[in-house]
Design a protein around this nucleic acid. Sequence first.
DNA 1: GTCAAAGTACTCGGATATATTGTGTCCGAGTTGCATAGG
DNA 2: CCTATGCAACTCGGACACAATATATCCGAGTACTTTGAC
Lengths: 162, 162
Amino acid sequence: MVLRSHVEWALHCCAILSGIPEGRYLSTKALAEFHGLPKEYLSKALQALSHAGIVDTTLGPSGGYRLAKLPSDITVLDIVEAVEGKARTFECTNIRAANPCRPSGFCDSGPCAVARIMWAADEAWRSSLRNVRLSELVATVAEDVPAGIWKSTGEWIARRAG
Amino acid sequence: MVLRSHVEWALHCCAILSGIPEGRYLSTKALAEFHGLPKEYLSKALQALSHAGIVDTTLGPSGGYRLAKLPSDITVLDIVEAVEGKARTFECTNIRAANPCRPSGFCDSGPCAVARIMWAADEAWRSSLRNVRLSELVATVAEDVPAGIWKSTGEWIARRAG
DNA sequence: GTCAAAGTACTCGGATATATTGTGTCCGAGTTGCATAGG
DNA sequence: CCTATGCAACTCGGACACAATATATCCGAGTACTTTGAC
């Protein structure tokens, strides 16, 4: 089991989108060039974000994407679930149908113990992601990057934001 | 992203294996019939458990699998990692190669903030699974199942354990 | 000089192919237990 | 009756097809900017 690359892309793109000037948009093309990603496929991840209401979109020249909310009102989990879906990572298939040998009533009532344990772990994972806001993620990125680089990057983004 | 069905199967099988009499083995065929699963494919999951040293195996008639350790010395994480692998669910592809527009030095040194956050969530998930022992899982299953059913199930297993 | 209108270029969004991974199946190597024959 | 030997059946393990999902790409619908012409 491994997360789709869309998750990584969406997180990086949201971090970048939080830095564009108020009221401006950044196109898929700019985001793809910045990250070195295939433009057309990246757009699928951005579409998912748009569908989830995390980003706004506008057509035409100078169009593109921008955050629909404040970075402090978006959690990392929101972004991950937008592209990965909200389904649990473990699904209980209730392995009991059509098994003549197994005594009936063994694991028939409600979710079995195995599923409960796996779901608890899944919730721990989600909880960890829910506790990190996009604003905090951006702040951490800013700490990692040398100040000069950070500044020039912001200018590059502002230039490309139509 | 969704866990492979092998995870569910392996957990259920280990729970059953913890109930067989000392020194006996339970064959793939019996486990498959009990759970209503394809025998040949289930054997792949059991092979993974064997490779990880969680179960012992023996050939010939009355052969099969048994736990290699005490149920209290096996964690749920051990079983999950045996069939899913120990690789992290999020892999940082370091999206920076061959992107002429992105300023060099932006995210070059060490794992970026995005990866750190995702890895922390991954560790929370693993930690949750590591805190549950197989013995505890079995105890929970026993609580769920009516006493009569639990007893007859144990007898069925003992009968099939060669 | 100002305004309106048409054209153009750029955007997103969904529909369409390919690659990778999970799922399912098959057959062979090896070992144990049993039957049998000999002592 | 006991023991040794050969046989047969059952086991696991890896090699081989099929299906589903992730990845990558293409083309059409729609909008904002620009340019051009008239007033």
